[in-house]
Structures are given as C-alpha cells and as structure tokens.
C-alpha cells in the first residue's frame, strides 16, 4: 500500500516539528536549569572574594582571574600564528599541494580530543620543558587547541574581502604586504575578531586539557609560572567532589553567562560587518 503524498507530507512534517521541539526544549532546559539554580547565588561578593575552605564558602575571584588570563595568553600566542597562516593561504600562494597539506593539518588538529591535548601538554610543557603546572603550560596548550579555529575563521574573513579592493591597491603601486596590511586586514578584521571570540569561548569551557597543564591551585597566581584554576575546572571540582552544590551552580551560571555574552558580542560584530558590506 502506498500512502498519498499529502499524508506522508503531513506525517513527515509533524515528526520534524516534534523532533525540533524536543531539541529546542532540551537546549532551553539546560540553560534554564543552570541559570535557575545558579543565578541566585551570584553577586559581586561571590565574584570578587577569595574562596574559603576549598571553595565550600567564599567566592571565585582567583578562578575568574584564571579564566581571563589563560585564554588571553593562548590568544597572544595563537592569533599571530592563525592570522599569519590564513594570510599566507589566501594572499601569498595559490591552491597547491602545500596549501592542501596545511589545511589538512589544521583540520586534523581541530579534531584532536582535548584529553590528547592535555596529555601532550603534560608530557611536553609540564614535564619535558619543566614549566610545571602553570599558566604558561596551560596557555600554550590552549593555543595549540584554538589555532585551527583561528585559521579557519580568519581565512573565511580574508576570502570575503572583495578582490576589487586588492586590485585597486595594487594599481596604486602598493606591494603585497602593504595591500594586506592596509586593505585586506582592516576589512577582514570583524571576521577575525569573531574567530577570536569563538576561540575564547572554547578555551573558557575547556577542562580536560587545562586540568593537566595549568593544575588546579586555588591561590591567586603571582606569575605566569604559577598554577591556576579556571572557572570550568573549579566547577568540575566543586560539583564532582560534592564540595558545595550552591557554589557549583553559581560558578556554572557565571560560566554560561560569560559564554553567552561572548557569543552575543561576536554576533553583533559579525552582523555589523555584514551590514556594512551590504551598504
């Protein structure tokens, strides 16, 4: 028996609608669950005071610092590499075996699970280079992790700059580098910034790679050779060890809000970028 196309249409589409609603419901539930349980406990005092008794009481200030400084260091290292790679790929060569190899490398790097980055960071930075569990080990490991995202997004951004811009610049006698610096990069900047924001989001949420390389000390770090604990790691420790569910939820709420605002900012930048392009 074959159903009339109209019935299959109705059946299929209602299934699609149900699946979509389930999906959206799960996603909304997760955000609501975390914010609903955590926001109550978040206040200025929680953000800016030191944790007491392993985080059972007090705030999350050192982890806030850790969450800012670790991604920042990773970006300082990875941004020049990522943007440089994408400039090379788009402006300095043609598609060839070399570019394919570079892209393949970046794709592979993007697929490596964070626990492998953690193992590598531990054996390479912490042990072999004797950096110990420190901000510098953690930052370098994160830099390795976010490099592929940076390459990909900057490449897209640079490719989106119209060729006519470059042609005008060349016809005015500018060299390739001058063109890149004065014409291409400024126009690709918002796209690059979006990539940077996405990378920051990823490094803030990372736990496995950070815990093996930056350690989990709750002390406010005095130098980049000190161990540090990020909010994600702090949340993991609080929740898993059952130290304090209230503080765990509150930390999770701060995390989700930070990632939410980073995403919003990058979308805002992207949209403005698209709008200015359309003008």
């Amino acid at each position: 028996m074959k159903l009339h196309p109209r019935y299959t249409q109705i059946g299929a589409i209602s299934l699609l609608v149900i699946a979509t609603l389930i999906t959206l419901a799960i996603l909304v539930f997760i955000i609501a669950f975390v914010l609903g349980r955590g926001l109550l406990y978040v206040n200025a005092d929680f953000l800016f005071s030191n944790p007491e008794d392993m985080g059972r009481a007090g705030g999350i200030f050192p982890t806030l610092i850790g969450t800012i400084i670790l991604p920042l260091l990773a970006l300082l290292i990875a941004t020049p590499l990522g943007v440089g790679t994408s400039i090379y790929l788009t402006e300095y060569t043609r598609e060839s075996r070399v570019t394919r190899i570079i892209r393949f490398g970046a794709d592979c790097l993007a697929g490596i699970p964070s626990i492998i980055f953690g193992l590598f960071g531990y054996i390479f930075f912490v042990t072999t280079l004797k950096m110990g569990w420190s901000i510098i080990s953690g930052g370098l490991t994160l830099a390795f992790m976010i490099l592929p995202t940076l390459i990909r997004t900057s490449e897209e951004a640079i490719k989106a700059v119209p060729n006519s811009y470059r042609e005008v610049s060349f016809s005015l006698g500018a060299t390739r580098w001058q063109t890149v610096r004065k014409v291409v990069l400024p126009n690709a900047l918002p796209g690059i910034v979006t990539g940077i924001m996405l990378s920051v989001g990823r490094s803030i949420g990372e736990t496995a790679a950070v815990i093996f390389t930056a350690g989990s000390s709750l002390k406010l770090p005095g130098s980049i050779f000190d161990s540090v604990r990020t909010m994600s790691v702090h949340f993991y420790v609080l929740a898993r060890e059952g130290i304090s569910n209230e503080n765990a939820y509150a930390t999770a709420a701060v995390l989700v809000i930070s990632i939410l605002s980073i995403n919003l900012v990058s979308y805002w930048i992207m949209n403005r970028f698209i709008a200015s392009k359309l003008k």
Partner: peptide, 8 residues
C-alpha cells in the same frame, strides 16, 4: 550550546 562547557 556548543560553547557550554562539557562539565556542565
């Protein structure tokens, strides 16, 4: 949602 930390 892709950005929410896996530990959450």
């Amino acid at each position: 949602l892709a950005g929410i930390p896996s530990v959450v």
